[in-house]
Amino acid sequence: MRVKLKDIFDLQMGKTPSRSNLEYWNTTDYKWISIADLTKTSKYIFETKEYLSKSAIKDSGIKVIPANTVVMSFKLSIGKTAITKEDMYSNEAIMAFKDKHVINIIPEYIFYLFKYKNWEEGSNKAVMGKTLNKATLSEIEVEICSIEKQRQIVNILDKIMSAVDGRKQELQLLDELIKARFVEMFGNPVTNEKGWKQRQLGEITTKIGSGATPKGGKEAYQEEGITLIRSMNVHNGLFEYKELAHISEEQAEKLDNVTIEENDVLLNITGASVARSCVVPSKILPARVNQHVCIIRCNQCIVPEFLNKLLIDDNYQRLLWSIAEAGATREAITKQQVESLQIIMPPIELQEQFADFVHQVDKSKFDTMTFAPIYDIINLYLHTHFYQGRR
């Protein structure tokens, strides 16, 4: 049967107690969920980066999220979903779906229903943008089948997701292999215990610079056209194609000073994703970047793949974060700070040897670890059982 979410759940938003009161945050008392926590977790959420004190809970009036409750992000990054394994709290970008127990529902069924649902389908994107609200969510209808059928669906999807998790582990191991090879060949790029020559990044690049958001913001984005790279697309050693934006040629002309070229290194310079870096994939060209992403174009002295792996080395990431967190109002790295970064300069032949190793590992990753077919199967299965027909 189809039911509205408000008929089967109490929808509960979280809160963020005052950041100025350090007593609220200097604690490990009560777990407090953010979107970042949901991004890192799998089906169940066990840990959170931040905690609230007892006084924070009392003074703010924030409500507890009981164990075995489905939580989902509904602002900015919509659809990040998990199930609480114990009583927790959350910020205001996360909705908790507290079961009213009017019909039999298992949390895992709701987890899969929410996680793979297209929350923008059939909506007015111009109005909704990247934010849902409690009223909108409350009126959404979902398909609830018998408890036996729910268990059957969850069992099948658990098996599929187990295969996905196994592949993710293999990918992580391959990434660790690249990191280990970098350290073996070049050492710590911050302390430079191997004594390589060093130069400022501005001296070994032909371009360093960020772009801008076209006039009109997201309302100016198109389904096709010139690619506009945003910080959400740049991950460490990986370009994320999800939610890739496009702009018109007329808008792109206004950003000609930040035209992307093949083998450019991208570095996020503001916000929560600051310091993430990857090499631009050639298949998205032509492209531009917005103000949150910095283009780094190497000259003949340095190999782009080597520079990228240096920037995402754990030691160098800590350095970049220390620079970013020293910003006055938010995490940010300025153009001048990027230009002044000290970069080790091993012989170009050694850099190329390392880049060849990275390409071989990446070939293994993408030849054998593609998730697309599995996600297609999941979405087809969910569409069949959750989003079509009546039972």
Rank of each mutant, 00 (worst) to 15 (best):
115 K>Y: 08
116 Y>E: 02
117 K>I: 12
119 W>Y: 12
120 E>Q: 15
120 E>H: 13
123 S>R: 06
124 N>P: 04
125 K>R: 07
126 A>D: 01
127 V>S: 05
127 V>W: 00
127 V>M: 05
130 K>Y: 09
130 K>S: 11
130 K>L: 10
131 T>N: 11
131 T>G: 02
131 T>A: 08
132 L>A: 05
133 N>L: 05
134 K>E: 04
136 T>A: 03
137 L>D: 03
138 S>R: 02
141 E>Y: 02
142 V>I: 15
142 V>D: 04
142 V>A: 08
142 V>H: 02
143 E>S: 03
145 C>Q: 10
147 I>M: 12
147 I>D: 12
148 E>P: 09
148 E>T: 10
150 Q>D: 11
151 R>H: 03
153 I>N: 03
156 I>C: 00
157 L>A: 01
157 L>D: 00
158 D>I: 01
159 K>S: 01
162 S>W: 00
162 S>L: 03
167 R>H: 04
169 Q>N: 06
170 E>D: 07
171 L>C: 14
172 Q>V: 11
174 L>S: 12
176 E>T: 11
181 R>Q: 11
181 R>V: 09
183 V>L: 13
183 V>F: 12
184 E>F: 15
184 E>P: 13
184 E>D: 15
185 M>S: 05
185 M>F: 11
186 F>V: 07
190 V>D: 00
191 T>R: 02
191 T>D: 05
191 T>N: 04
192 N>H: 01
192 N>S: 01
192 N>Y: 02
193 E>M: 09
193 E>K: 06
194 K>M: 04
194 K>A: 01
195 G>C: 01
196 W>Y: 05
198 Q>P: 15
201 L>Y: 12
202 G>E: 04
202 G>H: 09
203 E>N: 07
203 E>D: 10
204 I>S: 04
205 T>S: 09
206 T>M: 13
207 K>G: 04
207 K>F: 13
209 G>I: 04
210 S>G: 06
214 P>I: 10
215 K>P: 07
216 G>T: 07
217 G>V: 11
217 G>A: 08
219 E>S: 08
220 A>V: 08
221 Y>L: 12
221 Y>P: 14
222 Q>S: 11
222 Q>G: 12
222 Q>C: 14
223 E>A: 11
227 T>Q: 13
227 T>M: 14
229 I>E: 10
229 I>T: 13
232 M>K: 15
232 M>I: 15
234 V>P: 12
235 H>E: 10
236 N>A: 07
